[in-house]
Structures are given as C-alpha cells and as structure tokens.
Design a protein around this nucleic acid. Structure first.
Lengths: 222, 222
DNA sequence: ACAATAGTGTCTGTCAGACAATATACA
DNA sequence: TGTATATTGTCTGACAGACACTATTGT
C-alpha cells in the first residue's frame, strides 16, 4: 500500500444546456468550506461504497445536485495538482454533460452563459473552459449538439443550435447535406409546426441508435 | 474532509516508440504485489511531496522507471473504478508519451509491438488500447508523429512513420502538400543522405516552435 | 396575390488523389 | 548511359460554399 500521503479525489460535472439561445452552464451553491456558499460546478467525493466507477459518480452528482438526467455524459479530463485546493494535493476527475434545453433543473441550480461567467472557486473556470472547448471541437465533426435538442425538432432549429454552440453562421445547403450523410435523424410523423403564415417545417427525431452515441463525420461538418 | 473511504491514486504512462518499423510500447516488470514480476505499463503512486501535478508525476515515472525523456507527454484518460485493482476502488490517471525511435531506454525496459501484446495486469490492456487509438486519431490531423522521429529526417522517412502508425499507405503528393501547409519542418542545411546510387533526399528538422507542440490541420492529413 | 420560411437545384472554384515527368545521385 | 529514389507538375473527379429557385402555408 502507498507509503506517500494520498490525494483527495473528487468528481466535478460541467452541465451544459441551451438557455435563451446561448450555451449555459449549471452552477450550484457549495455546502461546505472552503468557498461555502459560492456558486460552483456541482461535484463531490467519490463514494467508494456506492459508485461503481467515476462515470457513475458523475451521474449520481448530476441527479442529486442538479436534479437532471443527461443523454450524453462523458469524462473530460482530470485536474490533479497540489495548488487547486488549499487543503492539499487533490484530484478532480472532471466530466461534462449535455442536457436537452427542455429539461428543467432543480430549483437550486443557476444557469449562466458560458461566455459570461464571473470567477469560480478552485480551478472551476479552467475546467469550464476546457469543457466548452471540447464541446465546440466535437460539434465541428459530430452529432454532439443533438443532445441539447428536445425530442423532436426541425432542421432549421438544429442548425441554429449548431450555430449557437459554435458561435458562427453555417450555410443551410451544406448543413442539410451533412446531416443527411450522418444518417442521424428521421422524420417524426405527423408532427408539424404550429400554424404560421409560411410553409411549415418537417419535424425530425434522432434515430434510436444515436440516443446515447455520437455520429462522427470523417470530414468537418462545417 | 471526506467522510467516505478514499480511493488509491496512481499515474500510469503508455510509452510509445517505433521499433523495427512498428509502433511499440515500453513494458517494465512490477516490483510489488499484486502481479509482482509481471510485465506492465510503468506507473506509480503520486508523490504529493515532490510532484507538482499529475503531468510531473508522469515525467518522473518516465525517467525513473524507463530512463527516457519525451518531447510529447500528455494526459490520456483516467481509469477509475472499484474493479480494476483487487485492493479496492482505485484511480489511474493514465498518460501517454511519444519517444524518438533513436532514444535508448533503460535496460529493464522491454519494447513490445502494440498490436501483439499478450495479457497485461489490471486494466493495462485497455489503457494501451485507448492510447493507441488516441495516437492514431491525432496522427490523422496533426503533426504528432514527428515526435517519433530522430533530430533530422527525410520526407519519405516521415511518410513511412505516418504509414506505420496509421497502418495504411498514403499518397506521396498529398502527404508532401499537407506537411508543407503545416509549415512544420525546415531543411537541415548541408546534411544529406549517405551516398547511394540515386538522388539523395533533403533532410529536414522540426521547426523550433513545434518542439513540444503540435501543428494541427483543419482538414484531415490523409 | 403576398409574405415568410422550408426545402431543393445547380454552378464554380478548390483540392485530394492519381499519375507522369523531371532531377540528381552513383555505378 | 542505366538505375533508383527524390521532387515537382498537372489532370480529373468530387464536393463545399454560394446563391437562386421552387414549395407550401396563412393572410
């Protein structure tokens, strides 16, 4: 067994969703010192007796601290050094989760735009930056943003979400060609937009096999 | 402080190099139980008193257990669950390192082709698989494999290394166009190939600013 | 018919891959 | 000159981006 003092191990989760047309992160108030009462990323100790692995711990934290479920949760990176927590050498196995924009969080959660965050405790600002970079990078060549969508959506709505995540305009023709190549969505029968003074859009849903997976493109989507 | 039993934290390093024209991994014999005497990935406890962060621990392990230095060492993924080590819930912050094919390892190191590994202790086979996947993936759109090269090399040699890492043939014209676009290498003056009955190749070296960095392409290299 | 958004057709410049032509060593 | 590898030129099919045209709804 180890001869050296062992580090503290925690799991933190960057929960991302769309609110008011912008990528937002879920923050919660810290229960304990240090930084008690400050808004921070939800996180917690590994519960060795109940968490099978780090991913399970992240799902537990997502549910317990934010009241959310996620169709896409994965490990981001591990932040481990002697400076990030004044209590000593500590390890945060950081994860990130995408949550559909229609899902309601627990009342203690505050959503904040990822590009307009004040300061966060520990190295949570760096963890958030890393998560947003990862999401933007994956968005460019995969179906990642569909996990931010409601159960059915139009292609125009999906394109808006890609644009909001990437922060840039996309060409309609190219975007639709790519989505078709990914073989990602199928028409959601009979459900059409509410009446409006223009042609209604076809609504789509993500094909079942991409429920928890990603469709990857070998070339860039945008 | 934590109310729950804390996991064990280790750092493991997947050290990759080219040997005999194939991607190889460095294995060492384990000192201690469990699996004492078995060949495994080099790893060890975090030394909270001397390692500033996980990356520093990986560099320490690279030097101390394999006698190597690496121009490219980064975090891979963290393997954390209750099953990987019979002693209990444990965390391995896994890293991977590329080492130039000309660098000699310590005598206790055994190089093994990554596609022909027997069984490895713990989940080291899975860690190795993940590392090789990552390297192949990054090779497709970045300059990663230059860190396997000796100080100077020809473009043909560089192409062979890309091909050996990816396991597929590349088109010469396309490859050279991409490398030029990356603005990655510069001619190594006056150093030309040994005499041979054909035109000698220009030798190149990696530009200084890519010594520890990667050049990324926005499209695929291959 | 008009307005507004959805959806599709198509042109054009760019470029990856293929392949050929030229260059430069030594024998 | 012949052989072998290096290096560069160039053709062609594919396709991303641009843009316009058609489709479909309510007013």
């Amino acid at each position: 067994m180890p001869e050296h003092a062992q580090p503290i191990v925690t799991v933190d989760v960057v929960i991302l969703s769309l609110q008011d047309g912008a990528l937002n992160v879920a923050l919660v108030r810290r229960d304990h010192e240090p930084h008690a009462g400050d808004w921070s990323l939800p996180g917690g100790w590994v519960h060795a007796d109940q968490d099978a692995d780090a991913l399970a711990a992240a799902y537990r934290i997502l549910a317990a601290k934010a009241g959310l479920d996620s169709p896409y949760l994965e490990q981001l990176k591990t932040f481990a050094n002697r400076h990030r927590d004044a209590r000593g050498w500590s390890v945060s196995i950081a994860h990130y989760a995408l949550v559909p924009m229609t899902q309601a969080a627990a009342p203690q959660v505050k959503w904040r735009p990822v590009d307009d965050i004040g300061s966060l405790p520990f190295d949570h600002a760096e963890i958030l930056r890393t998560a947003v970079e990862r999401v933007r990078s994956k968005t460019a060549y995969s179906s990642l943003p569909v996990h931010l969508m409601p159960p059915t959506f139009t292609l125009t709505e999906l394109q808006r979400v890609y644009e909001q995540v990437l922060g840039m305009a996309l060409d309609k023709r190219t975007f639709r060609r790519r989505i078709e190549e990914l073989n990602l969505v199928e028409p959601a029968a009979a459900a059409r937009d509410a009446a409006a003074a223009h042609r209604p859009a076809q609504r789509y849903r993500v094909k079942r096999r991409f429920g928890k997976e990603l469709a990857m493109s070998d070339r860039n989507l945008v």
